[in-house]
Design a protein around this nucleic acid. Sequence first.
RNA 1: GCGGCCAUGGUCCAGGGGUUAGGACAGGAGCUUCCCAAGCUUCUAGCCCGGGUUCGAUUCCCGGUGGCCGCACCA
Length: 577
Amino acid sequence: MKQDHDLADQDTREAVTSLAKRRGYLWPSFELYGGMRGFYDYGPMGTALKRNIQGLWLRLWVGEEGMIELDSALVNPRPVFEASGHLAEFEDFLVQCADCNANFRADQLLEGLHPNPDALSEEELAGQLEEHGVTCPECGGPISSPTSFNLMFGTRAGPGEGREAYLRPETAQGIFVNFSHLYRLGRERLPFGVAQLGRGFRNEISPRQGIIRLREFNMAEVEAFFHPQKRQWAGDLRKYADTQLTLVPNEGDEIRVTLGEALEKGIMCNEALAYFVGVTTRFLIGVGVDPERLRYRQHLQTEMAHYASDCWDGEAKLSYGWTELVGIADRGDFDLRRHHEHSGQDLRVFVPFPEPVEMEVERLTPVHKELGPRFRGDAKAVAEALMEADASAVGADGMATIPIPEADGKTRLVQVPPECFKLETVVEKRTGEKVLPHVVEPSFGIDRILWTVLEHSFTQRKGEEGEAMTVLKLPPVVAPVTVGVFPLVSKDGLDAIAEEVDGKLRGVGLRTLYDASGSIGRRYARADEAGVPFCITVDHETKEDESVTVRWRDTQDQERLPISHIVTSVKQLAGLD
RNA sequence: GCGGCCAUGGUCCAGGGGUUAGGACAGGAGCUUCCCAAGCUUCUAGCCCGGGUUCGAUUCCCGGUGGCCGCACCA
């Protein structure tokens, strides 16, 4: 995506970057040792902000939508990613021009010269490049032999050579490999959803743009499982029908519609996906993303991940340009099917029919005494496959052609002669069917969302001298500090009263900022920059009527409230009760 | 990975082959006791790392690391 950078964007970015570092939101990791690209640490404020963002996420998906939560392993053995497709999809080969130093993907240079260059190995690529005499498309210079890189961090588990393993590039696979447990705990019903917060790792070639592209990042993923013919979430779609959206469909121009209209007009065809766009919008706006700088863009067919059939990205306008925060993808049964095949475990679920149905079916019944001598070790597998098959497997010559599973997850076709089975017509009562559930996945980049919240909350107002004063307008639910507590002056016992008020608020778990230093205006300004939504000031009047001043960050308005109800008042004002 | 520009306290900047490396803001202590960054005193804190040139390098050169921009990559 091409991005426009004007001066104002760069100014914003620099101001927010500086504030984030100064105020303890984000620090480049390992600065002591010169830093490392793609890694950031969250300081005290950043940690709290991140936790609050995650808290609202959990409140919506696990709380309101009733999904179950998982926390799965970060280090995964190789077979997980053989099944998921990441091992193949994440491996690419680069070549470099010896003259102009330009880089190209080896497979892209073979486009049109080979039917399927993406599937070639390193040696095959080298051979093909040489055979076709491929040169640099930029300058025609000679190109290097291909060098591989894999976007996954590899490691080994156990002593010595151990077992080949990788740091997960997404949390999703943890949900798929635990599917059987989760389905049982989800009370064996569709639809049901699983939510997971956690870290992911990608060995990006060139991480840049602060925390927009990290090598170690925080994600929040939901896998919602559906009956293949019924992509409809349990929640009531009417709840989000009026949600205003800016949409960029893969055909046509950007439009502004309600979610209900988008469904009616067929701009979004997938009801479950649409519902999740609704929940996602509420989440993003709730944590402080500006609705005017949020849009959903549908992926082009060519842009889609290897597993997806439809995908809408939630994007925010940042100083970096439009940036993906969320991907909501219809993954079909891709993942479960792959794990079903690679693991050899049956991951299908039983879905009862509304009414049991009786039907005549033609069954193949194995004749074991014929199968045994003929197929020997494979006899058991052949017998099982015969029972799974139906009459359509039997050809005109009476031979049955059936697939039997191999150890590597593939299948092999076997010809079975007529004497090995009986073809019978039986009346079967079927109460349901086994299906592989389909998946819709909303996947959130927490770090990017946090950055967006900082940029979109960042405002400046003119001070009395005309100087720019920063106000970080974080929504109270995510603000790291909920309330500031100040004595107007540190004498006449005002400080003692303020400390007491502060203690009361902290005692119920609220995060406060007690500050008695400098002028009151200075303390308000400090709190504004730290994003504290409101401050309480104990003044001389407090000693007479036990009331305090509450001052709002966004409006600078003030109001007097009694100390006796201060805890409930603050919770109410912050929307935390 | 490639090319261009860059690297000085927490932040933003100045400087310069031998300096007590300077300022502003921020922070600590004290005074002031003031409802929107007032003032005063005082303190803390810095030349990214490695090598080279040199009597001497934070300054010049090379390499590394990190940052920004462009190319490539970003499922």
